[in-house]
């Protein structure tokens, strides 16, 4: 059996944090349906973010206490990283498919009979099912990989290193926002309210490219981690 697959199985051997995934959706849906779902517009799609954020949490959790034992078992850092990312990708694809199916049900039932929008996120997840699947899977995987990188940075450089890492990202994001919103360049299309006129799918492409960068960053960081 390939070591990547072994690593992916190794993560699932203690399934508690992955089973949480199945609980988050009904819980956040229930909260969304009785709060924003009852307000004007019935738009509770923001609550779906909790599910996405949990993927970043999962990504962090795959490193902390799991990395040392997997190295003890004889996995290399590279295999651990690739196997973990593989697990993240499989989870993202599976969960993306679940979101897509639930979105179809939401459409067919007129918002679960309550006109609630939960799985139909305007602009991002509001197209045909293949687009929903692709966008949600890419988004989930990106957050998972981001969580992994944070976990690796913490393993390697501790709390101070992680804070510096986050501060650096804040700087990058702030610089990005300044550039994008700089009126003179018209990067933010006021008409569509979308980034440089990107469609939802276009944005998915940008996130996918970002994910590749995150993957490379995480890989470069884990190479010299010691446990």
């Amino acid at each position: 059996m390939n070591t990547w697959i072994k690593v992916a199985r190794y993560h699932l051997v203690g399934p508690a944090s992955y089973l949480m995934l199945a609980w988050i959706l009904p819980f956040s849906f229930a909260v969304g349906a009785v709060t924003a779902g009852r307000a004007r517009g019935h738009d509770a799609a923001g609550y779906l973010a909790s599910f996405f954020i949990y993927f970043a949490v999962l990504g962090v959790r795959t490193i902390g206490r799991s990395l040392p034992f997997s190295l003890t078992l004889g996995a290399s850092r590279r295999s651990f990283y690739c196997g973990t990312a593989l697990l993240g990708m499989a989870l993202a694809l599976a969960c993306g498919l679940v979101l897509t199916a639930l979105q179809a049900v939401e459409r067919a039932t007129g918002g679960w009979g309550l006109s609630v929008r939960f799985f139909r996120v305007p602009y991002l997840l509001d197209g045909p099912w293949p687009a929903t699947w692709l966008t949600s899977a890419v988004g989930l995987f990106a957050l998972f990989v981001y969580g992994m990188w944070c976990g690796i940075v913490y393993s390697r450089w501790g709390l101070l290193g992680t804070l510096a890492f986050i501060a650096m990202q804040a700087l990058v994001v702030a610089a990005g926002v300044v550039v994008v919103t700089f009126d003179h360049w018209h990067l933010w299309s006021a008409a569509g309210g979308s980034l440089v006129g990107l469609t939802g799918l276009g944005l998915t492409g940008v996130i996918a490219a970002l994910t590749v960068l995150l993957l490379a960053g995480g890989h470069a960081t884990i190479r010299r981690v010691t446990v």
């Binding site: 072994k6 190794y10 051997v13 203690g14 944090s17 799991s66 078992l73």
Partner: peptide, 15 residues
């Protein structure tokens, strides 16, 4: 990681 004794042994057996 947060696992049981048997699970740790099962994972070790794969490697």
């Amino acid at each position: 990681p947060d696992i049981k004794v048997g699970q740790a042994l099962r994972a070790a057996s794969w490697f």
